[in-house]
Simulated scan of single mutants.
Amino acid sequence: MPRLPEPLPDALGEAFSCADASAAGVSLKRLRALDLDIPFRGVRRRAGAGEAAATGPLAEDHAARQRVLDRARAYAQIMSGHAFYCGRTAAVLWGTGALPSGELEVGVVAPERAPRRRGIRGRQLAPTHVEVRTLGGLRLSSPASTWAMLGRDAGVRELVRIGDALVRVPRGDRGRRRPEARLCTVDELAEVVASGRRVGSAKLVKALSLVREGAMSPLETDFRLAVVGAGLPEPLLDREIRDGSGRLAGIADAVWPEYRVIAEVEGDHHRTSRSQWARDIEKHTAYVALGFEVVRLTSAHIRPTGSAAVALVRGALRRRGWSPPN
């Protein structure tokens, strides 16, 4: 029976540099043991660290972010003090739902030299084009400057999705808005666009004109873009619906108050969660009692083209008195 490797000092954590391990008395032989991964040269990580399965309506997004976070924490063990995560890597770490790339993007401010290493995409940035923050002990570009960096390789639709994620105001217990918890504001996005020319400036300007506060998921962003692109009136987003006594009936995804129409964009968890399903029935019954017509939409209505969602909303609006402009 093979001998188990010697325990590592707890002080090393889940990921650590070989230099720190050596200073803690860990031998080179121990660093070659099979219970350690080698994410980067000079770094070791305990095998299986950070692999808890994600659950919930955004499980895939959470799992993708966790994988990037694990790699970022590992590389941070040997990252220089003036470097920081930026671009798509930072967008993932901020929790925007951005798709990760195969490499970690690591930035420095000129005249520092960008790092060159396998698995790392180094970027040298102008001082006017980046602001650095700290998140969970990691240095990374600020939400607004991260968004602007994506103008180089992201399309307008993805920039709008990520922009919506950055400016949305989270809701806490009982639906209370928490503006202090949002990542940035539309004004902050506008400031970085105006901070100087950069690759992708035209796309950033166009995307900025389409970013809205209140879209609570990429699916909701896609729905809004489809509706507006089809010439329908733009809805109000994330709106509290109250009865005559001020009691909260629910928080609607999209509302056309003039026409008393509500659209609800329902992810898969609305179907699989019994408690969510029960809340939806209660909420939609209350909306109808208040005189609203409710259009319930799934991803099949919205993606890939949004034409089915547009047709359903157009029909509801026309029944309620809207007519398209000549």
Rank of each mutant, 00 (worst) to 15 (best):
I281K: 07
W277C: 05
D253Q: 05
A249Y: 01
S273L: 00
E266K: 09
A278W: 04
D253N: 08
L248C: 14
A252F: 03
W277T: 01
T221Q: 07
P235V: 08
E258M: 06
S275H: 10
T272G: 06
G250Y: 01
E234K: 12
D222P: 03
A226P: 04
E258C: 01
R212Y: 06
M216Y: 01
G200P: 06
L204I: 14
A215F: 07
P235F: 01
G246C: 15
L225E: 13
E258Q: 13
A249I: 14
D280F: 07
S217T: 06
A286L: 13
G214D: 05
I241Y: 05
L208P: 02
A254D: 03
R271S: 04
D253M: 01
A263Y: 02
R242M: 10
A252E: 06
G231W: 10
V261T: 09
V205T: 11
A230V: 09
G214T: 02
P235G: 10
G231N: 12
H270C: 02
D280L: 07
G250I: 05
L237S: 10
V265Y: 00
A207H: 06
K206R: 15
I281P: 00
I262N: 00
G244C: 15
Q276M: 09
E234M: 12
V205Q: 12
G246Q: 15
K283F: 08
S273N: 09
P235C: 09
L248I: 13
W256S: 03
G250C: 05
R212F: 02
V228Y: 07
R279L: 11
L219V: 09
L237K: 03
R274G: 01
V205L: 12
V227F: 02
E220H: 04
E234L: 12
V199D: 13
G200R: 06
L208D: 02
E264H: 02
S245F: 10
E220C: 04
W256V: 03
T285N: 14
Y287Q: 04
K203I: 12
G214L: 00
A249Q: 10
Y259A: 06
K206N: 09
E258W: 01
R242Q: 11
L236P: 00
D280E: 09
Y259F: 15
F223R: 07
A202M: 10
D268S: 03
G200V: 12
H284M: 08
A202I: 12
V265Q: 00
Y259H: 13
Q276A: 11
W277Y: 15
H269A: 14
I241L: 11
D238F: 00
S201I: 15
G267N: 04
R239A: 09
V199C: 13
A226L: 10
G244I: 12
G246T: 12
E240L: 04
S273C: 11
S209K: 11
V227C: 10
I262E: 00
Q276C: 02
S273A: 03
F223S: 07
V261D: 02
L210N: 01
E220Y: 04
G246V: 15
M216P: 00
A252R: 00
G214Y: 07
R224E: 09
H269Q: 06
P235W: 10
G244F: 14
R239H: 06
S201Q: 15
L232T: 07
R212V: 05
I241S: 06
V228F: 08
L232P: 06
V261N: 04
T221I: 05
S245R: 14
G214E: 05
I251T: 08
P235R: 03
V227D: 03
R239D: 06
R274Y: 05
R239I: 12
V205R: 15
